[in-house]
Structure formats: C-alpha cells, structure tokens
Write a protein that binds this DNA or RNA. Structure first.
Lengths: 326, 326
DNA sequence: GACAGCACTGCAACCGCTTGCATTAATTGC
DNA sequence: GCAATTAATGCAAGCGGTTGCAGTGCTGTC
C-alpha cells in the first residue's frame, strides 16, 4: 500500500536509481527531472524505507538507549535530552529498560546491534570486559562508567560526593553514613571511593551501608539501620533513596534535619518538592544525554576518537541538612 | 564483520534457505542438520538481521511509542510497562517525544511508520481526522483519546474527576476551580465535560481556568488567578500542575488545605511525597501501557477488532484537601 | 516392481533501496 | 572538426534475509 521507490519511478518515467539519487544525491540529477520526481513522490506520499536503505548503506539512523530503569526519575531527563538531540540529527531512538539486570542488558545490546548505528549504555550493570566485547559488535558509548578505550560520558559524582561530605562535616557531623547503590554500579563505587578518601581527612567517621536497591524502597529499608548506627548524617547513592530514607526516618519518629541530616545525589525534580526539600548533588543528566548522542554520532565518523567527557556536579543545599544537634 | 546467514550456511555446508528455516521454521529441517546449523550459528555469533527479515515478511518486531513529554512523570511508568510488555512479545520499542507539538507528532508517526509494526499514540495532540488518516499508513493504537473506528485505551478520567469533585463538594466547597490542560488534549476535554456536568447538580459553582501548560510551571502560573477568583478548592488537570499550584499558593501565603484544597489527577509517584501529600485520582498508567501493546499486537493478527478499553480510575484522598474553612 | 507420498533440501525470485559502472548526448578544447 | 570531458541516466548486482516451487531419495503399498 505505501508507495515504494518503484511507484515513484514509474509515475515520473525514470529509472528507480534516478529516484534514489533524487533523495540521496540530488546534485547528480538534472534540476527538471529532480523536481518532477519530487512532485510525484510528494503526491504518492513516498518516503524512503530507512530499514531497506540501512541494509545496503550500513547506516540505520537509529540509536539504542539502554537504561537500568525508565521509571527511576533520574533517567527521563536523560532520555528526553538524548531523544531530542538524536532527532536533531535525524535519528530515532530505541529505549530499553534492563530492570537493573546485567543479563537482560547483554541481550538487549545484541538485539539492538543490527538495527542501530550505536548504543548508549547508561549506568550499565555488566562487567567491563563484557562491555568491551560487545563494543566490537556495535559502537557503544557508556554513560556513568569509565572504561579504558571506550567513549564515555561520566558525571563527576566523586567530586559531588566530596562536596556533600564537606558540607556535612562543616555542619559538625562526625558520624556519617554512606548508603550505597546496587552492586555493579560504577557510580556507587566512585562515590564510595571518594567518601573513604574524605574519611581519611579525619574529620568524620564513615559507615558504609550497602549494596542496596537504588529505589525509594531501598532507602526506606535502611532507616532502622541508620537509627541503630547512631549516625547524625547520611549521604545516599541517589535522591530516590534519600527520599525513601526520609520517609523511613519519619516513620521511626526521627526528624530531618534536626535528628538526622540527609543528602542525596542527582537533583531529580522530586527533590525540590519534598518537605523538607532535599539537599543534593546536582548531576547534569540532560547534558549527559546530549553529549552521549553527540559522541556516538561523531564517533561513527572518525572512529579513533575515544573521548571521555566528565561533567561537573554541584552541591545544592536545601533543607534536609542542618547542624548536628548538641 | 558480524556473521550473516551465508557465513552460517557455508560453515555448516547447507544452503542459506536451510539456515533460514532452522530459525524460522525448525520443523521443516532434519534434526541433525538443524543442530549442526545451530552449532555453527552459535559459534559464529550469528543473529538474524531483523531489519532484513522485515523487508520481506513485513513484520519488524518493533513498536513506536509517541508521548507528549518523556520528562512528565506521568509517562515513564507507561513507557516502562509498554516496553516490558513489548519485550515479552520479543518486540523492541522506539520512544519519541513530541514536546506537546502536533506537527512533530505527525512527522514522527511518518518517520516511524516503515520500521514498526504499529505505533502507540499516547495523549495525542493531533486532530482526530489526521490520526485517522495516519492510521491508514500504519496500525495505530491511541491512548487517552477515543476515536471511532480506532483501537484505543482510555482511562476513565471523567469518572475520576467526578469522584474528586464529589469529594470536594462533600467537604463543603461551593466554589471550585478546574485548571485545565493543554489545547488539543482529549483528557482535558473529558475532565471539563465531567466537571460541567457535575456543576449542574447545583452543589457548587465551577470556574474553568485554561488552557494551560500541563507542567509544574503551568500550575504555579495560575496561583494568583486562584487567589483572586475566591475559590476554596481546585481540581487540576494533572498532579504536576497541582503540585506547581501548591507551590504557587504557598508563595502567596495561602495554606493547603486550610485556605485552598487542591486535588490532582494521575497519582504520579511524586504526589505521595509532597507535603501536604496530594489528594489525587489514580490513573492506571502501567496497565494502560500494557493494554495498548497487547492491543496493537493482537490487532495485527486479526485486524477487525477495533476494541476500546476503558480503565477505571480511583480517588486517593491524602492531605491536600480538607473541609472548607468557615 | 511401479508408483504415490513424504521428508528434506536446494534453487531462485524477491523485499526496497544503493551504487559502481556503462551508456548516451551534449559540451569543451585545440 | 574530432577526441576528450562532462552531465545525466540506465543497468544490474547486491545488502541479509524468506518462501514457493522443484528436485532428490526413501518408505510403504498393492
């Protein structure tokens, strides 16, 4: 039913190759012929079949985007930015959700490999070596992980975590808990490393709690442990956990920030709207999405650049952190 | 570099058609041959190229999902559910964002048409007639809109709005505002219709404010108007607007729910976490995503069923609504 | 012993499009 | 005025698969 290149060729009385060139190499076809072909195409509602074209050119004009959890509010701004940037370059985006499962992740990359020009792997849970292997099957850009030899966009959470811990220590907190994220998360390891390095400054004592599910539920689940641990401040792997934790603490009768200070990471929209408003480290997720797409698209031109982009983070002090109580 | 069907054929000493059948019609292939082919395929890392297959079969095993705004927290649960349901049927999902723009929407449908088995149009902003026209180019399932002759999944927001208004009227509110959504939104019209019908019960007087941007910002923007209007309760087009409105009212020194009761629609995750917690109408977005995918996939089997599914909504009373002040 | 029937496999056309090469006609250089 | 360019188009192979049809060798039947 939909018009093919042959229909247009027939309608305009030229060979299909001329129709093809009208769209992919207009300068090779006579002006008059071109406009006649275009008119016919228009009239028939012809649009070239990208998949068929890809079969021979090897370029699909599609991008794969794999995230751990679409519903985690951290990701939508990234997805949105990536999609919009991709479309600016005339690309469409496949979005897939791994549910934090490394095996699903691998499957997805393989399923996508043939119909995309590259895959954006956001906060992957796979091992580095597996990712390297997959990168030989399809161009990959990794977000929130640093792997030698692979193009990557990372947000400098280590720096952010340090800012947050400085902030807490500056408020007089001497016993601080770090609530980590899921196993396999590079970000979580980075934060942990930064926190342990900050601990060595001797200004506070660090308790590490984890690994945990990076969700509100995961945050709520550690509330008791926080209470028992006798810490006065907490830095959580992400805002969602921080918010869940605040809820959990609330349920235990502990007040934030009077009894316990809580800080998160990501600055998701939500964190401005909770009460108390969440102190957090803002990560430039939209910028990361755009940068990753740009990197993928430019990378496919000249494949030597295995650039790394590191985006700065920023501490946003709101109401969930305060001076340690006497 | 990646293995093709020809590589596998050569390695296993059979014709490519036998390899093809090994995967798409195994029962036609001798057991031994089959396992030999499978072994070779495995070893070469062969995976059939879906796009090439689609060229001849007409089935892509891809689905398009078009939403108004990925970053609007209403959509991620829907996207997630759709993606997961699609994958259960071995389909991958293209996600695209229209930024609430009808023209972009049309372009996207056309761009996707050739490489998907169908498109899920969520909360479309296009005209009905345009949608009908597009549905002749590619199978469409519409979500949050009812169009005669097209398969659709709708959430019964009219009923939900009525529940919310009953609730408010029951609390003694006599002057209620309805803050509507964007132009072109079927949902917004439905809500408005339901509200106007409820007004006719004579229990309250309705003020309609809109159209508005369906965002937090859009909600905040009407705060002053609410204040001036002298209404004591507000039903907003969605939670995001309700939350923005609460912020705006807060900035004006009005307390929720003491001075103004605020109710939203959607029950996004966020609404449980604000203070006060938002009274809202829960819409089954995940169920809608699943249902839409199911409908699309079954529809493509027997194309006569142009089913309509209407999903029930539910009032969730929390803390942002209360009795009218004396 | 001839033949129908079956299981298996190969052949080749085709899906919609691109692209290197050949062909033709018109233009240019000398 | 003729060879050499150049511009415009056609031809046909091929991208990675699927599928109707035909062929091959067996088995079972009478």
């Amino acid at each position: 039913m939909p018009a093919t290149i042959r229909d247009v060729a027939q309608a305009s009385g030229v060979h299909i190759s001329t129709v093809s060139r009208t769209f992919s190499a207009p300068h090779l076809v006579n002006v008059e012929t071109r406009s006649r072909v275009q008119a016919c195409a228009e009239q028939l509602g012809y649009r070239p079949n990208r998949a068929a074209r890809a079969l021979i050119t090897g370029r699909t004009f599609n991008i794969g985007l794999i995230v751990a959890d679409i519903a985690n509010p951290f990701f939508p701004p990234l997805i949105k930015a990536a999609e919009s940037q991709a479309r600016r370059h005339d690309h469409l985006i496949f979005v897939a959700d791994t549910n934090e499962d490394a095996v699903v992740e691998e499957d997805l990359v393989r399923a996508l490999a043939k119909q995309v020009d590259g895959v954006l792997l956001c906060s992957p849970r796979m091992s580095n070596s597996l990712i390297e292997q997959l990168s030989r099957e399809v161009p990959l850009v990794v977000v929130n992980r640093s792997i030698a030899g692979l193009p990557a966009v990372v947000m400098d959470v280590a720096q952010g975590a340090q800012l947050a811990l400085d902030h807490l220590a500056g408020l007089g907190h001497r016993r601080i808990a770090l609530v980590t994220g899921p196993r396999g998360s590079w970000t979580s390891r980075e934060i942990r490393r930064a926190a342990q390095s900050a601990e060595r400054s001797g200004r506070f004592e660090l308790t590490v709690i984890g690994p945990n599910q990076p969700t509100e539920h995961g945050g709520r689940a550690v509330a008791e442990q926080i209470q028992r641990g006798g810490v006065t401040a907490v830095l959580a792997y992400n805002d969602l956990m921080a918010i869940g934790l605040m809820e959990g603490l609330d349920a235990l009768g502990l007040r934030v920030p009077e009894d316990v200070s809580v800080a998160g990471i990501d600055d998701i929209t939500l964190s401005r709207l909770t009460r108390p408003k969440l102190t957090t480290v803002a990560t430039p997720t939209a910028a990361a999405g755009r940068a990753a797409v740009d990197m993928l698209l430019s990378h496919s031109d000249d494949r030597r650049t295995t650039a790394h982009v590191s985006l700065h983070t920023e501490l946003i002090v709101r109401d969930s952190t305060g001076p340690v109580s006497a």
